[in-house]
């Protein structure tokens, strides 16, 4: 027979809610890229988890319900889980600030999360205007700045059109997500290769250089 030993009730710890401190408290995202703030609460019991914006004390969500009428804020929670996630869709720079995950105990317990929404920029190394002799190579290197995540793609444009590799031979594009760079190489440039070249990464502002191919 198994004899179970139960601690008397006065020796059992009170089941007060507490936070799981392993979640990230500081998030950086680029404009337009959805942000997720993860708040994990153990021993929640019958208390509610709410999200508020500290700047103006605006209540965003309570439990799984959304109080704010700003549709970009949403509470994500699956039944029985400890996680109460605030999703901020299409974040703007003005959404940067501190958000608080709050539990309705008396007194309340809370955890602050910092959200940074940044404008990511591309930069083409070298001069903004290039003069190249006909027959030389055009070599442009584009770096994506201030992006927390590598861009999912980087497009190159000549004027208003995406560069078509098959249109003309001798075009080589090497994009490295890890270093957030893309290199455009056009061999043996001709006067008709002159124009405004633009590097346009996903979720970043683009950068341009003016290329003049001289006879």
């Amino acid at each position: 027979a198994v004899i179970e030993h139960h601690a008397p009730y006065w020796e059992q710890p009170f089941s007060q809610p507490y936070f799981d401190n392993s979640t990230r408290r500081e998030m950086t995202t680029t404009v337009g890229q959805s942000a997720y703030l993860h708040c994990r609460v153990r021993n929640l019991g019958d208390r509610a988890v709410s999200w508020i914006r500290k700047r103006d004390l605006h209540i965003l969500t309570v439990g799984i319900l959304t109080y704010t009428n700003d549709q970009r804020f949403q509470s994500l929670h699956s039944d029985g889980s400890d996680e109460w996630t605030l999703k901020v869709s299409s974040p703007q720079v003005r959404d940067s600030g501190t958000y608080e995950c709050q539990v309705s105990t008396e007194p309340k317990i809370s955890q602050a999360f910092r959200l940074n929404v940044v404008v990511s920029k591309a930069k083409i190394l070298g001069n903004p205007e290039l003069y190249i002799k006909s027959g030389s190579d055009i070599n442009l290197t584009c770096v994506v700045m201030q992006t927390p995540e590598p861009p999912s793609f980087i497009y190159w444009y000549q004027g208003a059109h995406v560069i078509n590799y098959s249109q003309r031979g001798g075009i080589n594009v090497v994009t490295e997500k890890q270093t957030r760079t893309s290199r455009l190489l056009i061999s043996r440039a001709l006067p008709q290769d002159s124009g405004n070249y633009t590097c346009s990464p996903s979720s970043s502002d683009s950068a341009s250089v003016m290329v003049h191919v001289l006879n």
Partner: peptide
Amino acid sequence: TQTILTIATHVITKN
């Protein structure tokens, strides 16, 4: 204390 007390007819705080 930046504490939510009530929303509509619901008392949120456990106070």
